[in-house]
């Protein structure tokens, strides 16, 4: 597989995952609002904090209203991580890599792109938005299933999965982080004690934004509490959107790729960091900083991958050694 194509297909995996994550985030927040009494306000601005696109948002995130934020997250061409842009980038990468994927995969992405493009001005309406976002989520799921079922599980397939899992791990850490920023001030000492009545709902929404609520209940068998939620989303190896699971998947994909030693070593480091974390202690102080470090290491993983397999870095190295 060509190094140039490897990079494209990796980003295809990332952008498709980003589409789904963005759709989930907005959808969960919309639903959450319906559950809260009119007096309680949850800022839409936290969505912008989660996606890390604050620098592109020209207004104050604290006072940002639903319409502005939703448009920014879904349909704003100036926001590089907006749904429409992620999809458009995914489509460009898929156009460039369509000779190595099943034809239906390109058709699916192409269709989905047209679907969103034609509805970009409808996303601010709550009713239309729900339908549109569910369509996006189910189409990305279909894309994943199509590749699992119809594409050879070769290097290209592994690179898509690597892209997907890095993006997913990154998003899960962000969501936990925002949960902490918004909710931690209310925690009593010990972390598992009395929650403010609506904190409970908010933690549930954190879980829901990752479709993790049901799996969490099955796994934890206890009422929703901060400690268990954070531990579940970071350390659980079975739940597909938990960071530990994403890392495990990355490790498996990497074993199948040539020259992956350096990247594997980096993964093992993150895994240790995750295993050894004392969340009880961190919840009292330092969890936010800990998650920052985790995110940084996930980001570094991307650079290790680029260095090993992607064309620009390889050509730079050739020039150096020549």
């Amino acid at each position: 597989m060509l190094s140039r194509v490897a990079e494209r297909i990796y980003w295809l995996g990332r952008y498709m995952e980003r589409c789904e994550n963005t759709a989930r985030l907005v959808n969960v927040n919309s639903n959450l609002l319906l559950d809260l009494p009119s007096g309680v306000r949850v800022g839409w601005g936290s969505l912008i904090d989660i996606s890390g696109t604050g620098s592109y948002f020209k207004k104050d995130t604290l006072s940002a209203d639903e319409k502005t934020v939703v448009h920014f997250m879904l349909a704003d061409k100036e926001n590089p991580a907006s749904l429409i842009n992620s999809l458009s980038f995914a489509r460009e990468n898929s156009r460039i890599t369509r000779e190595i994927m099943p034809m239906e995969a390109w058709e699916l992405i192409n269709d989905l792109y047209h679907y969103i493009r034609d509805r970009a001005d409808k996303v601010t309406s709550r009713r239309d938005r729900n339908i549109i976002l569910l369509h996006v989520i189910s189409n990305v799921q279909q894309f994943t299933g199509l590749l699992a079922g119809c594409m050879s599980h070769n290097n290209a397939y592994d690179l898509i999965r690597i892209g997907r899992n890095i993006e997913r791990a990154d998003m899960s850490t962000r969501i936990v982080d925002v949960g902490l920023v918004n909710l931690l001030p209310h925690l009593s000492i010990g972390g598992t004690e009395v929650l403010e009545p609506y904190d409970n709902i908010l933690w549930m929404s954190v879980l829901r934004s990752l479709s993790a609520y049901q799996m969490y209940r099955q796994h934890v068998r206890d009422r929703v509490n901060a400690n268990a939620v954070v531990s579940f989303l970071l350390q659980n190896e079975d739940f597909p959107r938990a960071v530990a699971h994403c890392l495990k998947q990355l490790e498996l994909c990497l074993w199948a790729l040539p020259n992956s030693e350096k990247v594997l070593a980096a993964i093992v480091n993150i895994q240790h960091k995750l295993d050894e974390a004392n969340l009880d202690q961190l919840l009292q102080s330092g969890l936010h900083e800990y998650i920052d470090e985790l995110q940084l290491e996930i980001g570094n993983l991307h650079f290790k991958i680029a260095e090993t397999w992607f064309l620009p870095m390889i050509m730079a190295q050739e020039q150096k050694s020549a």
Binding site: L2, S3, V5, L257, L311, E318
Partner: peptide, 23 residues
């Protein structure tokens, strides 16, 4: 493979190679 110019390189043996993830 669909290649672009930057994917190919002519080595000192005057043969053409493509830059793949396996080298």
């Amino acid at each position: 493979e669909l290649v672009e110019g930057s994917d190919l390189v002519v080595d000192s043996d005057d043969c053409v190679y493509m830059r793949s993830i396996d080298g």
